[in-house]
């Protein structure tokens, strides 16, 4: 079967892994711990190309008609 590259699909926004520094900065900016972030499964197809591990933070950038770009963060979880 042909393998589809999900990252190029129009309906899938850009997912990227935050580096340690960016992650700390982001948690501080929102005054939140990893527990307080929305979650994403390690097995999520949208981040399969990032080789993310539980505890990593994924940044999702969506196009928004009113905000231009909308940023969203999810913490990678196991189950």
């Amino acid at each position: 079967m042909k393998k589809i590259d999900l990252t190029t699909h129009v309906l899938i926004p850009k997912h990227s892994k935050l580096g340690d520094k960016d992650k700390e900065e982001m948690l501080k900016r929102y005054n939140v711990s990893l527990k307080g972030l929305p979650k994403i499964l390690v097995s999520d197809a949208g981040i399969s190309h990032l080789s993310a591990r539980p505890g990593d933070v994924i940044e999702i950038v969506r196009d928004s008609p009113t905000a231009g770009k909308a940023f969203f963060y999810r913490v990678v979880v196991d189950e």
Binding site: Y30, N31, V32, K35, G36, L37, P38, R62, S64, T66, A67, A70, F71, F72, Y73
Partner: peptide, 20 residues
């Protein structure tokens, strides 16, 4: 800070309606 949170402080949206 513009985020939407539940009663235990967990973030639901980072900006209300993604544009605040």
């Amino acid at each position: 800070d513009g985020t939407v949170r539940d009663a235990s402080g967990r973030i639901i949206q980072f900006a209300y309606g993604e544009d605040g």
